[in-house]
Amino acid sequence: MLEVKNITKTYTKNGSTFTALNDVSLNVDKGDFAAIVGPSGSGKSTLLHTIGGLIKPDLGQVFYKGENVYEKNNRNANLYRKKSIGFVFQQFHLLPYLSVFENIRMSDGKKANKKSIEYYLEKCLLLSLKNKYPSELSVGEKQRTAFIRAIISEPDILLADEPTGNLDPENSRILMSLITDFHKKGGTVLLVSHDAESANYASRKITLQQGKLI
């Protein structure tokens, strides 16, 4: 379903060049649950964002269902992110002026209807908090809200960038079980994590070191 072919990404800062990804290739099949692990600065997030259509690689291609993601026009590239990809970030990035319900609703997919949102809110123990604002939530509640926002439009691939990085063990466990549920229902998960326990939920590990797969 997803094919990453020889991608290289370099950054230049203050005159020095840093290679975040160096000739990385991998395949992800539908229903895979892969954990991308490696030390800080190894290129994990860059790889995730490259797959998500947010960072264009300097070299190489990313194919999704046989189509090069970076050869799509703007409209189709946006549609790819909107319909096929769901992002979860360590910092949640909820909109502070929207309630829990509205933050999820902003996904704007047809599937983000009231019934479906309430189903997931109940499942994630957030139904009673649906009218609360992010400032009134605990970190675990915020991350669960961000998780529902990512999966509400039923994307093919969930890209989770250190989703448990700010959570205590209990909330980490809850979130990982939700991600596992998504995977069990046929979703594909790519999880970037420092946390070995979270990575253990994955059926496959992809290790990066200094921008290279090892």
Binding site: G52, L54, N74, R75, N78, L79, Y80, R81, K82, K83, I85, F87, Q91, H93, L95, M106, S107, D108
Partner: peptide, 14 residues
């Protein structure tokens, strides 16, 4: 800027 990033990540156009 994080908000804008999220909008973009969610497939919203420029």
């Amino acid at each position: 800027k994080y908000e804008i990033g999220i909008f973009k990540a969610m497939g919203n156009s420029k």
